[in-house]
Write a protein that binds this DNA or RNA. Sequence first.
DNA 1: CCGAGGGCTTGTT
DNA 2: GAACAAGCCCTCG
Length: 199
Amino acid sequence: MTYNNYWDKRYWQQKIWKYGKLLLIWQESVTDNGLWQLFFPGCGPKDLPAEQQFNPLTCSDKLHWKEKAVDKLLHRNSMLKLPAVKKDLFCGWQRFTPFETDVLARLAQVPAGRVISYGELADWAGYPRAARAVGRLMAKNPFPLFYPCHRVIQASGRLGNFGGGKDLKRRLLENEGVAFSSPEKISPKSRLEETLKLP
DNA sequence: CCGAGGGCTTGTT
DNA sequence: GAACAAGCCCTCG
């Protein structure tokens, strides 16, 4: 049974996580294998083909190793020590445009406990005034948490939108030690700009 | 000091 | 080329 669609060489897996049940999509391919996509609770494909469930016993050793590494990162609070993004755990890099690659690379450098605005991130990546395009990219970010789009907020200090819901965005940031002046507004102290001088 | 509204901007499909 | 979109900034009230 071979698929000529999304599920071709892809396998789904659910993981219990601190804030709910995550959905992971793995890709098993000779040329390119690893985590294809990560979905927050309540997001992602609705029906999951039973025969495409991830099976650590039948998948390749390489993929099995990557699955264990990802599991480790998700379970401890070790997401906090990002930007230690290990690109080799993920796959499907060819799907990104140069703009997207540049922005994601910068995003990976935003440390836990700090936030950056969509506009600042655009600037920082070398695309001034592309704030809205950055928002679009964050919305389809296949590797949330690892590429911490939850640390990207509005210039006003408000949270901005989030695929997993604003509540989750707030909780993630609180957990990382970000300071709020109100439930909706983030204190300027937690902005990356306050710490670094953006080159 | 907000908040709503309008016009402007960008990269992607 | 047109229509988007997890934005931004300025202007009012």
